[in-house]
């Protein structure tokens, strides 16, 4: 049986993990490579690096981070943030990333999804969708959740799938940071709309929330950042709990 995936997300700025805390046994909490290794020993199924570096110049450091991680961690690596063209895809894939996530750039130029899928295969093209409730559904937000594009999130999910997107990283702007649980309604509607894997993101705060998103929606994976960063829960604890609940996870 295909296992549900638990994915820690590392926010990386200028080559350093943001908000890193000192895990036991971790020499440098700000070092993305060490942090990725730590999550690996905890049983993470994948690692997502989100580059939140502001300047374009500093982004080269992300390539370096991916290269170093790929020499030590042998699981799928996804990189997102600041990806704007096919050349960025090539650079990250050559550095050792398995998947590359685009968000704003795909909204600005949706054919970037098609070009990247054509060139490198759908399996490495992830579209990150930041969605927020409106009066009549969910809209796609870009620029880190600051700009409402007016695009309907369900329609957008369908469209990127048809363009060749291989996976959707779905973040609920309403749930993100609340610790009140994943947005079940949003995750459910998107996973019923498309036939590609969905990574649910935003809002988890308890073990129960992980079970909820897998039991009540078609999500294939659940992603968390701060929850794992601040050791509120370990990946091992989450997986033990899910296994007890009868949800297939890799142990």
């Amino acid at each position: 049986m295909l296992a549900k995936r638990i994915i820690p997300c590392l926010d990386v700025k200028d080559g350093r993990v943001v908000k890193g805390v000192n895990f036991v046994g971790l020499r440098d909490a700000g070092d993305p490579v060490e942090t990725a290794e730590f999550y690996n020993t905890q049983g993470a199924d994948e690692i997502v690096f989100l580059d939140i570096t502001a300047s374009h110049e500093q982004r080269k450091t992300m390539v370096d981070v991916v290269e170093k991680t790929a020499r030590k961690v042998f699981m799928p690596l996804t990189v997102g943030g600041g990806i704007s063209d096919v050349e960025d895809y090539r650079r990250m894939l050559n550095a050792g990333a398995d998947k590359v996530a685009v968000n704003s750039a795909a909204v600005k130029d949706k054919y970037l999804v098609a070009r990247a899928a054509d060139k490198f295969g759908s399996q490495c093209v992830v579209v990150a969708i930041d969605a927020k409730r409106t009066e009549n559904g969910f809209n796609v937000y870009i620029h880190g959740g600051r700009t409402d594009t007016g695009i309907d999130a369900v329609q957008w999910a369908k469209e990127v799938e048809s363009l060749g997107c291989g996976e959707i990283l779905l973040t609920s702007m309403d749930a993100d940071g609340t610790k009140n649980g994943f947005d079940i309604e949003l995750t459910d509607i998107i996973s019923k709309t498309v036939n590609i894997p969905i990574i649910a993101s935003g809002g988890c705060g308890t073990l129960q929330h992980f079970a909820d998103v897998f039991e009540k929606t078609g999500a294939d994976a659940a992603l968390a950042a701060t929850l794992f960063h601040f050791r509120e829960l370990s990946i091992g604890e989450v997986k033990d709990y899910l296994k007890e609940r009868g949800i297939w996870v890799r142990r």
Partner: peptide
């Protein structure tokens, strides 16, 4: 969903296969 993407568990059919010397049924 297609592609089949993610971690899935193995059933070993031929344990004399040299590649599977350290692999067991249930490994992901």
């Amino acid at each position: 969903k297609i592609p089949h993407m993610g971690w899935n568990d193995l059933v070993v059919d031929d344990d004399s296969c040299p590649l599977l010397a350290d692999t067991r049924t249930g490994d992901y």
